[in-house]
Design a protein around this nucleic acid. Structure first.
Length: 602
DNA sequence: GTATTATCATGATT
DNA sequence: CAATCATGATAATA
């Protein structure tokens, strides 16, 4: 293998006798993401049009979970080269997609089952006692069954390969699956005494959720409260805490100088559970003492300092972005060239910011929120593909648009794309359904506050003030659409053309749960016509033009039809393929990086 | 090995 | 909408 990360045993602890085995073990887990390792125990049969569950779970109770023997050594992963970083980033993204899409499918199946149950058909006699198990837990359990958890042994100390400071997560279970924090509820994660080489518990990560009244969080300096001593129902201290479990582990980590991963919870409207977790980087415990808490009972307190030289904290970026939305000048008194380059053409303003140099280029172009298609391409094309639907209410499974060609509904009820497809048919102006129909997502325009900004590294770039949830729509790629014939003439004059067929098929990755269920394949997708058109962005363009290129991108292009049904001229809709925290640069895979990318972004 | 306990979660309900 | 309840999974410990 070409990548070779350096994994060093911790200096303060006894040397690790079997480092090679650890490496192999980590790569074994890692490689499971790359090969389809499904055992076939989980199978579904998606019948066209039928409400077949996407994921069938094995009967509970009959499955015996295998526990592999665990190594007792701590590992620190460091000195990753650029290639390794991309490799692990992709690995983590794949795990996150698997988790998120499994969860989405399980929720959808629940809803289907529920709506069928309410239909009042015979079969379920009497008992409406169908308790729902949480989808996040089921998704994690399925991934565990297939050995798809990263850092399963929770031995990695320090930063996790593939996870960056500032990354955002919506579920505790997601943190478990990725190995960032292995406790479902507990705030302190540690290697237990029995599994540690020195026979002492060692803390590796904590979550600061604001649930302990004695916490004192000042960002770089954090005084964290130990756990225990609380009434399980009232969440109030009722006895003195003891120096055991996680409390002892934090003390031991301080003694050994071991860094602690810190994850903070922030309230957020955009989260399904009202909370979002940010990875804020590594801290060191510098002091600890037994104190009298506000309750009057003894609590342990740990003073932690953030290690310097790390990327900005996710929670800090979040707060900056929140304030930018309210009072721009309080945060950035200068640098804004425009507060809305769309001049009101988008649903939300798109700001232009440059505190790097004198470039004002984006101001020179006409802002075109929607692409203009050639009349020959769209005229009289409304009836192609069966026309619109006649649903009188919000569309669902049986709808002509959603179920086109035996396909399934593209979005969940919150507008998250369930799975990438060659072509998504949304309901459009020729459908009877109301605007609130859940099958109208990308046509509604911007839902996140975006800004175009100048950076020394990537030229012009785009970032969001809002946290963008994986699978949600971001914006369309706009410009003047040219037929193949027109584009050849324009290209000869050296103008900037975006060619849709150059984009790698990244939509294939979104919704891919083949690691868990190899049988869950797409039903007969209609073959996508060859896309020979081009988009001229030399005079008119929108915010999408300023996305930076990356071969490990955080957004992707999904082709969509809704206003006309000419499959040769779909809309280029951009969706998030991971949770994108506020102020993080959006990046897209343009495929071959040729001259026009340079022209557009530099 | 199994049972017990603790745990800064979720989702639905009040 | 906040507080509350029921249910849940995991891992550490006994």
């Amino acid at each position: 293998m070409s990548f070779a990360p350096v994994m060093t045993p911790l200096q303060a602890l006894p040397p690790n006798p079997d480092e090679d085995a650890l490496l192999r073990e980590y790569y074994r887990l890692a490689s499971l993401y790359l090969s389809s390792a499904g055992t076939g125990a989980i199978v579904s049969a998606p019948a066209p049009g039928a409400a077949a569950p996407a994921v069938v779970q094995p009967g509970s109770g009959s499955v015996v979970k295998k526990c592999r023997p665990r190594s007792s050594e701590l590992v620190r992963v460091s000195s990753l080269g650029v290639r390794d970083q991309i490799y692990f980033r992709d690995l983590v993204r794949r795990a996150r997609i698997t988790f998120e899409c499994l969860r989405g499918l399980l929720l959808r199946d629940d809803e289907r089952a529920e709506s069928l149950g309410l239909g009042g058909v015979a079969g379920y006699g009497g008992g409406g006692d169908r308790r729902r198990v949480r989808a996040d837990l089921r998704a994690a359990a399925l991934m565990a069954d297939h050995d798809l958890w990263l850092n399963r042994d929770r031995r990695i100390v320090g930063s996790m390969p593939g996870i960056s400071v500032g990354d955002a997560f919506f579920f505790r279970m997601e943190l478990c699956v990725l190995g960032l924090h292995g406790q479902v509820q507990a705030g302190i994660d540690y290697v237990s005494a029995g599994r540690s080489a020195s026979g002492e518990p060692i803390a590796t990560s904590i979550i600061v959720s604001g649930g302990y009244e004695d916490d004192d969080d000042r960002g770089e300096v954090l005084v964290y409260t130990g756990h225990g001593g609380r009434d399980p129902n009232l969440h109030k201290q009722c006895v003195d805490q003891k120096l055991e479990g996680g409390n002892l582990a934090l003390e031991r980590s301080m003694a050994y100088g071991i860094e602690i991963r810190v994850i903070r919870a922030v309230k957020s409207r955009r989260s399904p559970v009202g909370k979002v977790y940010f990875y804020d980087g590594l801290y060191k415990v510098v002091d600890y003492w037994l104190d009298r808490g506000k309750s009057g009972f003894g609590v342990y307190k740990y003073k932690m300092l953030r290690i310097e030289g790390q990327e900005p904290m996710g929670t800090v970026n979040y707060r900056i972005a929140e304030q930018l939305k309210v009072d721009v000048f309080a945060v950035r008194p200068t640098g804004y060239l425009s507060f809305d380059i769309s001049m009101g053409r988008e649903l939300l303003p798109v700001a232009l910011y440059n505190d790097v140099d004198d470039d004002r280029d984006p101001l020179l172009f006409e802002y075109l929120a929607r692409p203009i298609f050639p009349t020959s391409a769209v005229q009289g094309k409304f009836a192609e593909g069966g026309g619109g639907c006649d649903c009188s209410e919000n569309c669902s499974i049986g709808c002509n648009c959603a179920g086109r060609k035996g396909d399934e509904f593209a979005y969940d009820k919150t507008g998250v794309l369930l799975r990438g497809k060659p072509l998504v048919y949304e309901c459009g102006p020729h459908c009877r359904c109301p605007p609130s129909c859940p099958n109208r997502v990308s046509q509604k325009g911007l839902q996140h506050r975006l800004e175009v900004f100048r950076s020394r590294e990537t030229g012009w770039g785009v970032r969001s003030l809002d946290l963008i949830k994986a699978g949600t729509f971001i914006c369309e790629f706009s410009g003047i659409v040219l037929t193949q014939q027109q584009s050849e003439i324009v290209a000869a004059n050296g103008d900037c053309l975006v060619r849709p067929n150059r984009f790698p098929l990244r939509w294939l990755d979104w919704g891919d749960i083949s690691d868990v269920n190899p049988e869950y394949v797409a039903p007969d997708y209609p073959a996508l016509s060859e896309l020979n058109f081009a988009i001229d962005v030399s005079r008119a363009r929108n915010v999408a033009c300023y996305f930076s290129h990356s071969c490990s991108p955080n957004v992707f292009v999904q082709f969509v039809l809704f206003d006309h049904y000419n499959a040769s001229y779909p809309h280029l809709m951009i969706f998030a393929m991971e949770n994108i925290p506020p102020l993080r640069e959006l990046s897209i895979d343009y495929g071959m990086v040729d001259e026009w990318v340079g022209k557009l972004t530099m």
